[in-house]
């Protein structure tokens, strides 16, 4: 707090440090975006601005197809992970086994992509084998290809990955909601759904929309799990990984990385800005008349 007796220069140093670290985390990404607009790409002495690399990838049919799959997955994840996060947050509020439940919901954060992807891969293969064997035993072909690697399995992998984020974001917003309001709404004659939709939801929708945004970006960026579980198609990050590993750092891969970085930054950046603006509005509304508590 700049208000007490802490040295003002130490305080400024603190801020400088925080901003420097944020910059440090962003700088490499900004640098590759910069490179991606260079005609002569990385390592050249000359810098000549061009958008050719971007034109090149957008003309590439495989890449456009991969963008389409990325989009499908993102929509699928939005439509499933966020409702599930919401249900989970509601469940958390009412369950008596809070610790066990939260452990189950948040554990996927602690299981690295390659491990989770491999375990699911073998899980799906086993189910597939077992069900097909069962079908063969019955003499029917209905089960052929059940849970074979493909869109569904990739989607499940991404849901497992994104639900913890949706859950935690919604839960944090929900923790500011007082349950007495639901009780009051029920007291006024609303049924459970009306109480939720008309009273609770308007107060937690910020969390729901932020989690939609986060989940979309997480899905858009996900490569490892999808690579293991996808079956026959490629997503945009999948193509980027194979480019990087097989061809190395070409102008095209810089442009692809540039697209991924810019999409995330614009998307998340605008969410952050909207949140900040909203927060300021709320603050102005509830500004204390006098004696603001400087820190609490």
């Amino acid at each position: 707090m700049q208000d007490g007796f802490m040295n003002i220069w130490l305080y400024r140093l603190g801020w400088t440090y925080v901003l420097f670290i944020v910059f440090l985390l962003l700088a490499p990404v900004l640098y590759i975006v910069y490179i991606s607009f260079n005609e002569y790409t990385f390592g050249a002495r000359i810098y000549e601005f061009t958008t050719d690399w971007y034109t090149l990838i957008l003309a590439d049919k495989i890449l456009v197809a991969s963008l389409k799959w990325t989009g499908f997955l993102a929509v699928g994840v939005m439509a499933t992970a966020v409702p599930m996060g919401l249900l989970a947050a509601k469940f958390y509020k009412s369950t008596r086994h809070k610790v066990a439940f939260v452990t189950l919901m948040l554990s996927p954060l602690f299981v690295p992509a390659d491990i989770m992807g491999s375990a699911l891969l073998i899980y799906f293969k086993n189910i597939n084998h077992a069900v097909e064997a069962f079908g063969a035993f019955l003499g029917v072909t209905w089960f052929h290809g059940f849970l074979q690697l493909g869109f569904t399995t990739a989607l499940i992998g991404q849901i497992i990955y994104t639900v913890p984020y949706a859950f935690i974001v919604i839960l944090i917003t929900m923790s500011r909601y007082r349950d007495q309001q639901t009780e009051a709404a029920r007291g006024c004659g609303a049924n459970a759904w009306q109480a939720f939709w008309q009273v609770e939801f308007p107060q937690i929708k910020v969390g729901v929309f932020s989690s939609l945004a986060f989940v979309t970006i997480l899905s858009f960026n996900e490569a490892t799990r999808t690579a293991l579980l996808k079956g026959g198609f490629d997503t945009f990050p999948n193509v980027l990984v194979s480019q990087m590993l097989n061809i190395g750092m070409s102008g095209e891969s810089y442009a692809m990385a540039g697209i991924m970085a810019v999409v995330s930054m614009v998307f998340i950046g605008s969410i952050i800005i909207i949140t900040l603006i909203r927060a300021r509005g709320i603050e102005r509304k509830f500004q204390p008349k006098a004696e603001p508590n400087p820190i609490n």
């Binding site: 944020v22 990404v29 997480l218 990050p237 990984v241």
Partner: peptide, 13 residues
């Protein structure tokens, strides 16, 4: 913001 940029891109960068 940095956390939400693809890890792939950040590591690659």
């Amino acid at each position: 913001l940095p956390f939400m940029i693809s890890e792939l891109v950040r590591v690659f960068a």
